[in-house]
Amino acid sequence: MTSTLPATDYDKVRAKAAADVREALQQIDDPKARRATADEMREAAYLNLAIVRPERDQLIAAYAFHHPYDCTPRELCAAFGLSHSNLRQIRIGALGQTWGVAGTKLPSKEDMPGVADSLGLHCTEETGAQAVELAVQFQENDAAWKEALHQIGLATAELAARRLTVPPLERPDFATIRDDARDQVLAEFADITRPDERLERSAEVVIEAQEEMDRLIVERDQLIASLSCYTTAKAVYFSAGLSRTGLKRVMERALRLDRDAKLPTRDDLMQAGQDAGVPFVENAHETLPKIAREYERHRTIREAATQIRDAVIPVLVAPPYQWTHQRIADAAGIPQPYVTVLANA
């Protein structure tokens, strides 16, 4: 990477911001007052995020478009504390296009600087450092917001005296969700015929879908634990798209139990949740089905795109392309031995 960017440990940035929130709230013994203070901290961090995000995104887009050959997507993500899908979302948004629409494409590397200038996304020697500075502020406030929200849930759980009555949970039609997601992927790739382009785009889709799954599963499991411990909700696994065994695994992790340990009885779950620090999540009965639908959609997208990615690998190994296994692995972001297995299949 010929253009250097300040090296930043975003994990440490986020950890310190979250620790600052926890330490401030630990000074407050009354859970009701602690919850009120945490809510104020959450709102302040959220407002800061809204202020920082637009300028951060503009600077990152300008830098990324003006350094298409100097910085790989992986290097850009590391420099600015982004996931792969975050970076793509920022760049597509800067072009005035809608993120998530099938077939949305970025300009070629050759065209990126000119397109950026035409949109007013100019890049100076200070742009990279400025983007990193705002990226740090964004990560600090994002971590503070999430930790404050978590602390609100803990205080609310501490205050709970009985299970909250909630209406029956919605049960999403997961079969239809899977069919629609698969059709979406097939429709996008119907217009991508070149094997190298199919590999690059399918790899992007797999990475983006996995990142969304990693994010959603954390929220999904928090919702499941909150509903199971603190509300009257029944058969939560149906709304979450899980089997009974899958639900048990979630609760084992939430209650910090060994795998296959016996779960507390329903009468004891509330106290067990409080003892394990399970936060109460407001409106979890409404949010869980939405999160479960999104998780299943991205899981199916990843599965369909993986099949497309794997199917094109033997084509690129053979004439006239004759790509090496390492070149394919680098382009797809997968281990080289896995490429060898597919190429020889």
Rank of each mutant, 00 (worst) to 15 (best):
T2A: 14
S3E: 03
P6V: 12
P6T: 07
T8P: 04
T8D: 07
T8N: 04
Y10D: 05
Y10W: 13
K12C: 14
A17W: 02
D20S: 12
D30M: 08
P31H: 09
D39C: 08
D39W: 08
D39E: 15
R42F: 14
E43R: 10
Y46S: 15
Y46D: 14
L47I: 09
N48Q: 13
R53M: 10
Q58V: 03
A61K: 01
A62E: 02
A62F: 07
Y63W: 10
H67S: 10
D70Y: 01
P73H: 01
R74A: 15
E75W: 00
L76K: 01
A78I: 05
A78P: 05
S85Y: 12
L87V: 11
Q89V: 01
I90N: 13
L95W: 07
Q97I: 00
W99I: 14
G100C: 07
V101M: 12
V101S: 10
K109S: 10
M112I: 02
P113N: 03
A116D: 03
S118C: 00
E126Q: 11
T127C: 03
E133F: 01
A135G: 10
Q137N: 03
A144S: 13
A144P: 04
K146A: 12
L164T: 15
V166D: 05
F174I: 02
A175N: 06
A175I: 05
T176L: 10
D179P: 00
R182F: 00
D183E: 15
E188D: 14
A203E: 01
V205S: 04
I207F: 00
E208A: 14
M213E: 06
I217P: 02
A225P: 05
L227R: 03
T232M: 07
L247F: 08
R249I: 10
A254R: 00
L255D: 11
K262M: 09
D268V: 09
L269V: 09
L269C: 04
P279G: 05
F280A: 07
N283Q: 15
A284C: 09
A284I: 08
A284F: 07
T287H: 03
L288K: 01
P289R: 04
P289V: 03
I291H: 00
A292E: 04
E294L: 14
E296T: 08
E296N: 11
R299V: 05
T300E: 15
R302S: 08
R309Q: 14
P314N: 11
L316A: 08
L316Q: 04
Y321I: 00
T324K: 12
R327K: 15
A331L: 11
A332K: 02
P335G: 07
Q336D: 13
V341R: 12
A343Y: 04
N344P: 03
N344E: 15
